Amino acid sequence: MPRKIGNETKHTIYQRIRADIITGQKKPGERLSIDILKNEFGTSVTPVRDALQMLSQEDLVTIKPRSGYYITLVSLKELNDMLELRQILELAAVERAAEKISDEQVIRLENVHEGFTTDDDANYARYTEENKNFHFLIAQASGNQELAKQIKHLHDRLARFMIIVRSGKIMSNVHGRLIERLKAHDPMGAKKALQKELDDARTSIMDKIMQEEAGSWHLGVSESSRGR
């Protein structure tokens, strides 16, 4: 059924399409028709095209010249590399954050943590945003803004995979322990708390993908590899 949103902004369209991608309503490799989307949202071509451009910057949508817009395919190798990169970047960030984090930054982290919603069907998209914001704030507390931007972008790319694990309740407990270690300015303790989250997430994602989701995710040869 069409979702008429009148004169809503490109950001609203972006959020709606992004939620559909993250929750699996739109599948990897699926073509996104601008004409269909503009009718669905009751708007013109321009905000739809702008929204798809925003999603391409998060690597959730791939733009193919003279072909159109597609939900980005991710190979198993690319997924594993992203999870490994996340571990490298976030462990470096949390170690520095534990040394430098201010009282104000701790309060901001606590506010995000306290506002955490469950990862049930109704809260999928918000769950990924809350988790991304939590880790982004930690990275900002490291004092390295480029590191923070890289971590934020990585969470955007991994959102589709992190959401299928349904680890929100466990993650909330881990985040609570992590905040305590950051407040204590304990780099090793903070790294240990984060390491558990990273290890559990990586194991759960790879197991889930390999056992149940591989067919629907079309994991295989990457887009870049096909052109070689």
Rank of each mutant, 00 (worst) to 15 (best):
R86W: 03
R86T: 08
R86P: 06
Q87A: 01
L89R: 00
A92C: 08
A93V: 11
V94D: 12
E95Q: 10
E95S: 09
A98N: 13
E99V: 15
E99D: 13
D103V: 13
D103C: 07
V106T: 15
V106I: 15
R108Y: 12
L109H: 14
E110H: 12
E110C: 11
N111G: 10
V112R: 10
H113T: 08
F116A: 04
T117S: 11
T118I: 12
D119N: 14
D121V: 08
A122Y: 08
N123R: 11
Y124S: 12
A125I: 06
T128A: 13
E129Y: 08
K132P: 10
K132M: 15
F134D: 00
H135L: 04
H135A: 05
F136P: 04
F136I: 07
L137Q: 09
L137N: 08
I138K: 00
A139M: 05
Q140E: 15
G143H: 11
N144Y: 06
Q145K: 07
E146D: 14
E146T: 12
L147N: 01
L147T: 02
A148N: 00
I151T: 01
K152F: 07
H153G: 04
H155M: 08
D156R: 01
D156P: 02
R157T: 02
A159V: 04
A159R: 00
F161Q: 01
F161L: 02
M162G: 12
V165A: 11
V165Y: 02
G168K: 04
G168A: 11
K169T: 11
